[in-house]
Amino acid sequence: MDASQQDERYAAAAAEFGGAIERLARAYEAEADTRTDLIQDIHVALWRSFAAFDGRCSLRTWVYRVAHNTAASHVQKRRRLRPERWATLDAIEALPDADDPETAVGERRALSRLMALVHALSPPDRQVLLLYLEDLDAAAIGEITGLSAGAVATKIHRLKALLARRFAAQHEQGGGRA
């Protein structure tokens, strides 16, 4: 692939998946300034990766894989600088819900609660949840994360149950969308 093809592919991918990349960056990095750096890093990695893109997987899978790998590296690097505690799915399910359902109304509130949950998850579980929220199927998630289809299905099942429990209570109380 020559340089102009690489540029064209990148431009097309950035236009199509720019929003998804930004959502992913929000899920991996809470600080606005650092998040901008992460988004730029992802775009750089994406552009570089198109030099080796052979079309053996879909463009969407490729973009998500590059974005998640870059974000995961960012998180690991940040973890060395500022250690913080992440929770596995088991630990998250054992935690009490921090928000009061009565006051948690509206999409904004639901989104911030969802974001808090995403930030608390360990990177492997976070990766699966984000891809699930982006509406990718289990096969595509497995292709991106390297997990087996069975492992992905199990994680998605548990994540859906967790989300249903957390957000159904809020919906009943507040009548919000989520």
Binding site: A11, R26, I39, Q40, Y132, E134, R177, A178
Partner: peptide, 22 residues
Amino acid sequence: MSQPPDDLKTLWQGQDTETKVM
């Protein structure tokens, strides 16, 4: 809301984004 996770997908994907393509 019968399927909260599906609504959450819509909510998640409906976030405002100001993508600055480099």
